[in-house]
Nucleic acid binder design. Structure first.
Lengths: 344, 344
DNA sequence: CTGTTAGCGCATTCAC
DNA sequence: GTGAATGCGCTAACAG
């Protein structure tokens, strides 16, 4: 249509240069007119290039939160099976800041085309991102985003709203005088995860803004040395004659639910995070009343998909992407497929 | 690998016959070994065939439920842009059984490769499906499914559970003695929609099973002649000194919310269905407390996607597909993209 | 600076 | 029954 060959069109499409201004304009005009959209799948089959992509997140345990994110990532790779991807995964211990630091240092040395980061500690992440910025390697965040970085995009829940909703839900099912115990994970290196901080803020803001006067008990919670939890828990249930309501700000609510069941404590209302296998079980048994889901598969899926689309056909992407905060009860949990539901 | 040419492999893949048993087995064996998966996108580009697909649903109004389903259908077509599809849409008046009957009669006469049905009236739908079965034309349901038919698949919420959840939600935010008014749509021809019946059953079952003794007022609700609603509504709020809680079993909760606002009635708790533009607005304003979402875009998307995959690469599909029942509040509504979220 | 050619995985057509 | 040839939209290597 523009009176030039495929080769020239291709050069225009990918700004490869070596095209006369006249030909370039002619081609551009036609592309505009026919509203040309490249087909990424077809592109991919003919593309010889291999992409090296690195993924770094907290360690993956089966049936837990981060496994879902990785599932989503793999799922995107399946959908773009024609794209030749070399994937490398580096996990770190999310409860140990030194583990994170070490892993990130190592990653920074590698060569790659893009990076997916599941961040926990802000400073370490910022440091890694700086290195990527220097090398102009695009990176995207999943689970949460970190200030002072410039990712290509992020896919995260709004953790402030998340905490806010947890407060709304727990207060909707307990008497106004009931104490509320909030559990948050302790981490070596004394840094809280950025997500926990935001959730806690949202939680207390809700109570304040809506005039709730429940006594709030903040309780540390160790994933690495569970024996400490026993102490806190027994103290919690002994010192207060009336059982408190419980909110767990990380995905390990099932630990608390198990303690409560093992000790035959009755009447505890619980709101927890994430559809881990163990949490879902506790929800079904009625130990947990509400779970908040944050679409981890979808996050991983979108992260990888966005990256691939950016690498293959340039096109600008939406940078800020907040995922759904699903309110799950024992009634609707069965419909939240641990793996499905990716459109867009 | 099997010592035959591409042509023979293709014949085996598509059961086109004209292949010796020996060659067929050799190819099958190799396909098995390499775990061959056809790539539907690449298939589609080389496929000469055009597919004629008909969609029939209730009429579409902007910002309303059925528009979302159609959006999802179109979205699937975009994702499979290489597939040559001739789409024809026939809508009927969902509040008029005769309109439905007439539309379905017309459709039954047409020739097509596949059909997507958004059903309302069981008998009319069964009749249409019988005709399709005779001609061996595959059809899939969206929104709800109908007994005594044999669709290729259906994508629907579990409407019984939906009603059950609405009961749980409304009772969680009202005092135990509050009356509950249930609105359900009236339809000419005196047939209720199948979805309404199921939701109502779920609703009353929840109350019964959990010992709730609230007085239930069932109120008819006309979408076609709204002037009748005024009468019912004013009577409702006059005869009962204490304002009742309200549950609307169809997607038009905003009508009631508007009445309540226009008449300055305070303190009404509401649980309604579907993220229509008007309902979302009422939710944000605080008129509605909970909305139940049923992923209409996703339903439409999956329906079309399933059909295409069935038409192009045969492979068996999952027949029964229950979608998420999302619990939406003013806090999390912003994250439910009216258009996104399609994986798998 | 430009056009030609080959090839990606797949379907189709036609001659053997 | 079978294989070879052609083409879908696209990238890439190369010859001019």
């Amino acid at each position: 249509m523009a009176g030039v060959s495929k080769g020239t069109v291709d050069r225009v499409l990918h700004n490869r240069g070596n095209v006369s201004e006249k030909a370039r304009l002619a081609v551009k005009k036609v592309l505009e007119k026919v509203d040309y959209k490249p087909n990424i799948h077809i592109s991919a089959i003919s593309l010889k290039r291999r992409y090296k992509i690195i993924v770094t997140t907290p360690e993956i345990s089966i049936g837990a939160y981060w496994e879902s994110i990785h599932n989503g990532i793999r799922h995107a790779m399946q959908e773009y099976e024609n794209v030749k991807i070399d994937l490398q995964v580096f996990t770190y211990n999310q409860y140990d800041i030194y583990s994170c630091r070490q892993t990130f240092e190592k990653i920074a040395e590698f060569d790659m085309d893009a990076l997916i980061i599941g961040p926990t500690f802000p400073e370490e992440t910022i440091h890694l991102c700086k290195r990527m910025d220097e090398k102009e390697i695009p990176y995207v965040f999943v689970d949460s985003t970190i200030d002072s970085t410039s990712p290509l995009a992020f896919f995260s829940a709004d953790h402030y709203v998340c905490g806010y909703m947890m407060a709304k839900l727990i207060t909707s099912i307990i008497p106004s005088h009931t104490n509320i115990a909030i559990f948050q994970a302790v981490r070596t290196g004394d840094k809280s995860a950025n997500t926990t901080i935001l959730r806690k803020k949202g939680f207390t803001d809700f109570l304040e803004q809506n005039g709730f006067l429940n006594l709030i008990l903040t309780i540390p919670f160790s994933v690495t040395s569970p024996e400490d939890n026993e102490m806190y828990l027994s103290r919690l249930f002994k010192t207060h004659k009336e059982v408190p309501a419980i909110v767990v700000l990380n995905s390990r609510g099932n630990y608390i639910a198990d303690y409560i069941e093992a000790n035959h404590i009755k009447g505890v209302k619980m709101v927890c995070m994430d559809l881990t296998a163990a949490n879902v079980e506790a929800l079904k048994k009625g130990q947990i009343d509400y779970l908040i889901g944050q679409e981890p598969e979808y996050q991983g899926f979108c992260a990888m998909k966005t990256l691939l689309e950016h690498l293959i056909i340039k096109e600008p992407v939406t940078k800020e992407n907040y995922v759904q905060l699903d309110i799950i009860t024992r009634e609707n949990v069965a419909f939240y497929k641990h793996f499905g539901n990716i459109m867009f």
